[in-house]
Amino acid sequence: MIRTLNSLRFILILMIVISHSTLPISQDLINYLGEFPVAIFFVISGFVLSLSKGEKLQKEVLGNRNFFLSRIIKLYPLHILILAILILLDWRLGRILPWYQILSHSLLIQTWYPAHDFMAHLNAATWFISDLIFFYLIFKYLYAWIMRHSWLYLLVTISIYMAVYISISLCAQADYSAGYIYAHPLFRMIDFMIGILLYKVCRSE
């Protein structure tokens, strides 16, 4: 099952890449090949991690530090390489960003800064990885919280969460912060949580 879901994640990433290409057709399909696959990717990630690592982390068969570092090692070296190339290209074009912006992108914490333009420079697509890093960091605790509580409690809590998210999103649609809210880890976390909830459904009797 995990191999099949990972193959699906690859297809979703490919759809996202196409949506960000310069092909004329990509502009017409961006809502379908961009935003939808992002949400599904986070859902699948929550489910796959719950299936493969959830119980191991909860029973401390796998240490949270080792789990987190293993995820970082898969993502970080390539991220730094691409970032260095982009910084060099920007320098050649005479565009030099502030050091703190470069540092935040290097550490993959740019989505926590409350401005879309701050997040969208350099390798803008890494907002996605920035969110994933946060999800990996809190996965053990989020998984334990969802598994521990009743469905009624989870339904009420998530309904309140969604109401807040929708309200803020609607208020931000006409504002420059809409893109930032779309990418913020605390708002995208609902997709990841849905994946863990689906795993709980599969586990339940």
Rank of each mutant, 00 (worst) to 15 (best):
V201L: 11
M147F: 04
S204K: 09
G195E: 00
R92L: 07
F47T: 01
S45V: 01
S130P: 06
A124M: 08
I73M: 06
D191I: 08
R71H: 09
L69H: 03
I73N: 07
Y32I: 15
I96G: 01
Q27H: 09
F67H: 09
M193E: 04
A178R: 00
Y199C: 12
F41D: 12
I18T: 00
E35T: 15
I166H: 06
L29V: 03
I30D: 03
R95I: 06
S130Q: 11
S150Y: 04
L51Y: 07
Y176N: 09
M119K: 12
H79G: 00
L5S: 03
I18M: 04
A125F: 04
L57D: 03
S7P: 01
S19L: 00
L29T: 05
L75I: 15
A39E: 07
L154V: 12
I13E: 02
A163Y: 06
F47R: 02
S19V: 00
V164A: 10
F134H: 15
S19A: 12
I40N: 03
A172N: 05
F128S: 15
A178S: 11
W151K: 14
K140S: 11
N66P: 01
Q173D: 02
P114I: 12
Q58R: 13
L62D: 03
L137D: 05
V164Q: 08
I158R: 04
H20T: 00
A115T: 10
I13N: 01
M193R: 05
R65T: 15
I96H: 02
C171K: 11
D191V: 04
F139Q: 14
N64T: 13
L186K: 09
Q173G: 01
S26A: 02
S159L: 08
F67Q: 10
L83M: 12
L23M: 09
L83N: 08
F36H: 13
A115L: 13
G34H: 08
L108D: 05
N64S: 10
S104D: 11
A39L: 09
H149V: 15
G46Q: 00
R71F: 05
I138Q: 11
D191T: 07
Q101E: 12
F67W: 09
L69G: 02
I190H: 04
N123W: 02
F135N: 13
V38A: 10
A125K: 10
L93H: 08
K140H: 10
D175P: 01
L155Q: 03
L57C: 02
D90T: 01
L132F: 09
A120T: 15
I2L: 10
L155F: 07
N64L: 06
W151Q: 12
I194Y: 02
F68W: 14
P185M: 11
F192H: 10
C202W: 10
Y141C: 05
S19K: 00
S204P: 09
A39V: 14
Y165Q: 15
G195N: 07
Y182C: 06
H20A: 02
I44K: 01
K53W: 07
